[in-house]
Design a protein around this nucleic acid. Structure first.
Lengths: 176, 176
DNA sequence: CCGAGATATTTCAAGCTTAAAATTTTTACG
DNA sequence: CGTAAAAATTTTAAGCTTGAAATATCTCGG
């Protein structure tokens, strides 16, 4: 916000820039609210109907698409979560025999993680239920509307990813 | 998914219903991805520039709008998080003298939580930065587009809230 | 007044999440 | 070959989150 706009806002006078900024803030709050509500609903259904959690589901979904398995580092970058996080979730899934860790031949540092037959079965049941839950929750969104929404979300995601990338690479910016 | 649609899907034959379902699932994944990226970016900026976190910001924002303060239960229902969660966050904010807990006269069970002067100051600086960060991230979304996006998000949020409410009240449904 | 049930909050156990430090192994250069 | 830097993973400390159990207090009918 510019100095002039800020002073205007402090005086209760609105400017086009300040209005647009408030509107974007409201949009972000709506986005956050909708996402949290959907997540809470899905979490509750996973918990009560399948005795599992969304993070476990995410890990299993990534592995389902990789029949040969994934390295721990591939898994954490696919899910965009920290390495240590994946370690914990994988530990628990291994202890329930839903996935297996196998060492990599050429590289004794690395581990490959793969779904077991039991893990595949459980995931497929979970995934079918999950799709139907989402279908119900998003039923009120029309096809054209969904496409437009998707494009806007892609732009927002790209902007956030670009900013984080730039920050991580040490770029310095006056308003960071 | 109906039995026929499921068989069709298993045969690799697509149906209108199955297509729509997959499209809604993709929309949900995009929504989740965009929200998580924005949250990660905001979290990182809060952490590195203000040494604080989003949950703390949320608590302070709720209190900023309530000069008389809020009860712990009002706070947790405003933020839609569990009671125990708020207890922990408030404990930490109190230890930094950003908020204060005061007993309620008529009711020795209850506590009122309020921002201190220091808390107000810190929040206002934080909130200004937060608004400008969001403004930057959402700059690519046009005004009309934002309005339409907002309406769709409201519908999705309402659907999720309604389902959770119905579940909590013990309604039984075949596909829950 | 008293006790049962309701209400407000905290505590607890378990799991998720991150950033940073530690560990182990590999790679590549001198 | 030897070793320093890089890479893969795990560990750790701190905080967030939930649901459920525990505490403390209040309300209200008898």
């Amino acid at each position: 916000m510019t100095l002039i706009a800020e002073q205007a806002a402090q005086n209760g006078v609105s400017t086009a820039a300040a209005d647009a900024s408030k509107e974007r803030l409201r949009l972000w709050l709506k986005l956050l609210k909708a996402t949290r509500l959907v997540e809470a609903d899905l979490r509750e259904r996973m918990r009560s109907q399948f005795i599992t959690t969304l993070p476990r589901f995410d890990v299993m979904a990534a592995l389902r698409r990789a029949p040969e398995g994934l390295r721990m580092s591939e898994l954490s970058s696919a899910l965009k979560v920290s390495n240590g996080n994946v370690t914990g979730i994988v530990d628990r899934l291994v202890s329930e025999e839903l996935i297996v860790r196998t060492p990599v031949h050429n590289d004794r540092r690395a581990m490959i993680v793969r779904l077991t037959a039991k893990g595949c079965e459980e995931f497929d049941a979970l995934a079918a239920a999950h799709e139907s839950w989402v279908d119900g929750l998003f039923g009120g969104v029309g096809r054209d509307e969904a496409r437009e929404l998707g494009r806007a979300l892609d732009r927002i995601a790209a902007e956030a990813a670009a900013h984080m990338e730039a920050t991580r690479e040490g770029r310095v910016n006056q308003d960071d």
